[in-house]
């Protein structure tokens, strides 16, 4: 087990290297540099000034040298300083934004499992009934719906027209003065819509997967055997079939991590939530190279960890994969 874990962790290194090379390369090959952006129209900034800025940020060196220096610092977990005017370390900026994003995505995952598994099981249990048809239609709509549009509609109906839920940020005015319980309640109300919007695509995908998984398992030999031995339909469905159909869900959950992390850019921008997604959006807009690279690496590490955890969990629940 420990050997397997070590091997998997070591395999992440070349993957991460590849990802950083691709992003570093694409970012720097694209025209437009931070020293030029915002200065090109300014008559007071001379060519010499631009050169000085470039050498200050190390942008005058050849690309492979820049990458090498960046990598050398990365080995010490130092992502450098942000190019923005506050010039704070990238690590610090990410660290204060990451928890919000992680929480929203974890809650979204929980919501996906909580909703999608019952939908899939119900759909398969009543295959081809009106309930199954209705759920299938809803799932297809869930696939096709642009999450940010659903977010906008929810903001209009729940937020603007009825005023039931706040439509932006994480805290109400006067949050500092509230009691602890009130603060948690306030936070929950702010996070409700973002979590729902993050989860919607996953719910559609997962419930469809769950449905076909259940139908596959129901058709397998050991279920027929159980039935022949007189097990009740209930026991067959929930004790035998469900447990087997849940296995691939774990893998799917691991694979959904990049989508969730990518989606947080849109969700956080929509609801003005100060998380990593919004930070990334702002960094990209300002061409803050170190910050963009830092967040990309963190995003990739989270994705790889998600896959690893999914594989480990799979091995844990499915004795057949253990050696």
């Amino acid at each position: 087990m420990r050997g397997y874990l070590l091997k998997r962790l070591l395999m992440m290194v070349p993957l991460l290297l590849g990802i950083t090379i691709i992003s570093f390369g694409m970012m720097h090959l694209a025209p437009g540099e931070p020293s030029v952006v915002g200065n090109e129209m300014n008559p007071k900034v001379s060519a010499a000034d631009v050169e000085r800025l470039r050498s200050y940020y190390g942008l005058d060196q050849p690309l492979y040298l820049q990458y090498y220096h960046w990598l050398k610092r990365l080995a010490r977990l130092d992502f450098g300083n942000s190019f923005s005017s506050d010039g704070r370390p990238v690590m610090e900026k990410i660290a204060e934004r990451l928890p919000v994003t992680l929480w929203i995505n974890l809650l979204a995952m929980a919501l996906i499992l909580l909703v999608a598994i019952p939908i899939g099981v119900l759909s398969s249990a009543y295959q081809d009934s009106w309930l199954d048809r209705l759920l299938t239609v809803l799932v297809f709509i869930g696939f096709a719906i642009p999450s940010f549009w659903l977010g906008l509609l929810l903001m209009i109906t729940l937020g603007v027209q009825h005023g039931w839920l706040p439509i932006s940020g994480m805290h109400s005015y006067g949050w500092q003065q509230m009691g602890w319980w009130q603060q948690q309640w306030d936070l929950l109300r702010h996070l409700l819509m973002p979590v729902l919007i993050s989860a919607i695509g996953g719910i559609a995908g997962m419930s469809r997967f769950m449905r076909s998984g259940m139908l596959d398992v129901i058709r397998s030999d050991f279920i027929t055997t159980a039935r022949a031995m007189g097990a009740s339909e209930r026991a067959i469905r929930y004790r035998y079939a469900l447990r087997n159909a849940l296995l691939p869900i774990i893998t799917l959950l691991g694979l959904s991590v990049p989508g969730l992390i990518g989606g947080s850019v849109i969700v956080e921008q929509l609801y003005s939530i100060p998380g990593m997604g919004l930070l990334f959006y702002q960094a990209v807009m300002a061409r803050d190279y170190p910050l963009v690279m830092g967040i990309t690496v963190i995003g990739a590490v989270l994705t790889l960890l998600g896959n690893l955890l999914a594989d480990l969990a799979y091995g844990w629940v499915d004795p057949r994969t253990r050696r």
Binding site: G18, M26, M27, P31, V284, L304
Partner: peptide
Amino acid sequence: RFTDMVLCFPTFFLILAVIAFLE
């Protein structure tokens, strides 16, 4: 292996970064 690598990449980040830098 290369395909697997791109698959486990948060592509939306890459797309955002590239498009913002390319205009």
